[in-house]
C-alpha cells in the first residue's frame, strides 16, 4: 500500500562546535490521504526538525521521503512546494508586510492567476473578501492564520505542514481555527501533519499521533488508543499535564 506521504528511517544530527544534538533518530512516519497526523513533544524534541525535513528545508543525514510512493529525498522547498505547504506559527510574519493579502495569495499560486478562486477560498476559511485589500499588520493573528490556510489551498498543495500554527493565538481564536480545520477535514479537503506541544489540541483534531522526545518517536498510534492506553511514561506525563490544564467538567 502506498501512503500519501511517508518517511523511512529519518536521521539528523546538528553539530555546533563542541555540541552535538540528535534532532531526529530513526524516525518513521506515514500519512494517508484525508488524514491528520499529530506530532507532539516539548521544545527540543525534534518535532519542528521533522517538519522541516519533510518540507526539504534541511538536509537529512540519512533516510528517505516518499510522496505517493515516489521518492523525493533531497528536494528543496521550491520543488516540494508543488505538493506541500508550510503553515507557520507566526501567521502575521508569514506575509510580506508591504503587500496586500490578495497579492500575497496570488503570488503563491503556481497556475494562472484566478482572483475568483481566491475570493471563494477566503470565504471558505471564514473571512470577508474586503480583508484581501489589507496588509498583514491590519489583520489579527487569527485572520492571518486563516489567510495562510487559504493561501495553502490556492497553491494547490495536497499536504499541509502545520508548525505550532495556533500556539501564538488566544485560546478562543485557537478554538475557532480548530473548528475550521475540523470542518475542512470532514469535507475531505485536508491531509496534514500537525505539530504541537499541546496533546489536548492534537486529540481534538488528529486521527493518529506521534509522541516525540529527544529526537525519537516514543509512541505512535490511533489517538483514542494512545489516550486510553499510553504505553510510554513520557506520553503519560504529557497526558497528565494536559488533563490538569484543561477544565474537565463539561458545561452546558
Amino acid at each position: 500500500m502506498t501512503y500519501l506521504l511517508e518517511g523511512k528511517n529519518l536521521n539528523k544530527t546538528f553539530r555546533e562546535k563542541a555540541k552535538t544534538t540528535i534532532a531526529l533518530s530513526e524516525v518513521n512516519f506515514c500519512l494517508n490521504k484525508g488524514e491528520i497526523l499529530g506530532v507532539v513533544g516539548e521544545s527540543g524534541s525534534g518535532k519542528t526538525t521533522l517538519l522541516k525535513a519533510i518540507a526539504g528545508m534541511l538536509k537529512l543525514d540519512q533516510g528517505s521521503l516518499f510522496y505517493n510512493g515516489t521518492e523525493y529525498t533531497g528536494q528543496k522547498p521550491r520543488q516540494t512546494g508543488q505538493f506541500l505547504q508550510m503553515i507557520f506559527q507566526d501567521a502575521n510574519s508569514s506575509f510580506d508586510p508591504r503587500m496586500v493579502m490578495e497579492k500575497s495569495l496570488i503570488e503563491s499560486g503556481r497556475r494562472e492567476k484566478n482572483p475568483e478562486r481566491i475570493r471563494q477560498l477566503v470565504q471558505l476559511v471564514g473571512l470577508e473578501e474586503e480583508l484581501l485589500q489589507r496588509k498583514p499588520a491590519a489583520l489579527s493573528g487569527g485572520q492571518c492564520q486563516r489567510m495562510a490556510i487559504a493561501r495553502a489551498f490556492y497553491s494547490d498543495a495536497e499536504i499541509f505542514l502545520c508548525d505550532e500554527m495556533t500556539s501564538a493565538l488566544d485560546v478562543s481564536t485557537q478554538a475557532r481555527i480548530l473548528e475550521l480545520l475540523r470542518d475542512l477535514k470532514k469535507e475531505g479537503r485536508l491531509s496534514a501533519v500537525f505539530v504541537s506541544h499541546d496533546i489536548a489540541l492534537v486529540s481534538m483534531l488528529c486521527d493518529r499521533i506521534m509522541v516525540m522526545k529527544d529526537g525519537k518517536c516514543v509512541e505512535e498510534g490511533e489517538i483514542s488508543e494512545v489516550i486510553r492506553n499510553p504505553s510510554d511514561d513520557y506520553t503519560r506525563a504529557l497526558l497528565e499535564s494536559a488533563r490538569r490544564q484543561s477544565i474537565q467538567e463539561p458545561i452546558g
Binding site: 528545508m57 522547498p77 516540494t80 512546494g81 500575497s104 503556481r110
Partner: peptide
C-alpha cells in the same frame, strides 16, 4: 529567515 520569504520559496519563486 522570515516566514514570508520561506512562503515565497514554497511558492516556487
Amino acid at each position: 529567515n522570515e516566514a514570508y520569504i520561506q512562503a515565497a520559496v514554497f511558492a516556487g519563486k
